[in-house]
Amino acid sequence: MKDLGFILLSWSVTLGSMALLALATLRRAKSLAARIRRPEALAVVAMELTPRPDQPASSRRRLLPAIIAGLAVVVGIGIVAIFLTSSIDYYCNVDEIGVREGCDDTRRVRVQGTVDEGSLEQRMSTTAFVMSFNGASLPVEYDGEPGGIFQECIPVVAHGRVVDGVLQATRIEVKHSNEYEAQNKERITEAETSACS
């Protein structure tokens, strides 16, 4: 199995820490309970946990400002969120380079696009490919081997500067989609024949 180390590490950290917390809780509780187990203590527990009637006079006065504050905060977050959508996107799409504000080709940009089929080339240590999005395309050069599941027909985010119409990338990240499909014979052949559809 590929990448088995990372997968095993993820799962063992997850299950191990859950089990550890569970066991530690049980052990601590056991030792505490052993120390406290006395009849007087039982009475204290019974007292502690008996519900008391509400005191309605004070609770209503407390509720109103809380509701108002809650509403204010929710509205505030909504406004902030809507506002921010326009401002600090993580990346620009290929077709927005030089068009959209903040995506000028004069400074460092992060560009998102799909690697064109058949455009991937290895020249010495440099990886060259063309990425496209929404009809526009942009050649990219990257010094080194992109990591992750980098391949043709996959959406990527390239960091770098545009020089003479070529993006000189200093970093390439793979932005995989949120679609998951099980690998099986039928689909593999289908994927190979109509790769970039």
Binding site: P65, I68, A69, A72, V73, G76, I77, I79, V80, F83
Partner: peptide, 11 residues
């Protein structure tokens, strides 16, 4: 917006 939200929450 930030200032208004946290002033309201604090009060």
């Amino acid at each position: 917006v930030f200032a208004v939200v946290f002033t309201a929450a604090g009060a």
